[in-house]
Amino acid sequence: TEIRININGVTIHVRDASEELKKLIEHLLRLGADEKEIREVLHRWEK
């Protein structure tokens, strides 16, 4: 699944996002995570 996240005008594009990762990101956004925090989570997730 491919997702695009727009945070304050900055688009983060994620290829091959699992449903689990998608739910995690949606949850973090609801909690008010910023772009830097989302990128950090994505970076750690890929490892």
Rank of each mutant, 00 (worst) to 15 (best):
T1G: 10
T1C: 07
T1Y: 14
T1H: 14
E2V: 08
I3S: 03
I3N: 03
R4E: 10
R4I: 11
R4S: 13
I5T: 02
I5S: 01
N6K: 11
N6D: 09
N6E: 10
I7T: 04
I7C: 05
I7Q: 04
I7V: 12
I7H: 04
I7N: 03
N8L: 05
N8G: 11
G9N: 10
G9Q: 06
G9I: 03
V10G: 06
V10I: 10
T11P: 04
I12L: 05
I12V: 06
I12M: 03
I12N: 01
I12H: 03
I12K: 01
H13G: 04
H13T: 11
H13A: 07
H13I: 10
H13C: 12
V14N: 02
V14I: 10
V14F: 12
V14S: 03
V14T: 03
R15F: 14
R15K: 12
R15A: 09
R15Q: 09
D16C: 10
S18G: 07
S18M: 04
E19Q: 10
E19V: 11
E19G: 07
E19S: 10
E19R: 08
E20Y: 12
L21D: 00
L21R: 01
L21Y: 02
K22I: 14
K22M: 14
K22W: 15
K23Q: 13
K23C: 07
K23Y: 13
K23L: 14
K23N: 12
L24A: 11
L24F: 13
L24I: 12
I25F: 03
I25Q: 00
I25K: 00
I25P: 00
I25A: 01
I25H: 00
E26I: 15
E26S: 15
H27R: 14
H27A: 14
H27C: 14
H27E: 08
H27V: 11
L28E: 01
L29K: 02
L29D: 00
R30S: 08
R30M: 06
R30L: 07
R30D: 04
L31G: 06
L31A: 09
L31Y: 08
L31I: 13
L31V: 07
L31T: 07
L31Q: 07
G32V: 02
G32S: 04
G32A: 03
G32N: 05
A33H: 04
D34R: 06
D34K: 08
E35Q: 07
E35P: 07
E35N: 03
E35I: 11
E35H: 08
K36I: 10
K36C: 02
K36H: 10
K36V: 10
E37W: 13
E37K: 11
E37R: 12
E37P: 00
I38V: 06
I38T: 00
I38A: 00
I38Y: 01
I38S: 00
R39P: 00
E40D: 08
E40K: 13
E40H: 11
E40N: 10
V41E: 06
V41M: 14
V41I: 07
V41N: 04
L42I: 13
L42G: 00
H43W: 14
R44G: 05
R44Q: 08
W45K: 01
W45D: 02
W45Q: 02
W45E: 02
E46T: 15
E46N: 15
E46Q: 15
E46D: 13
K47W: 13
K47E: 14
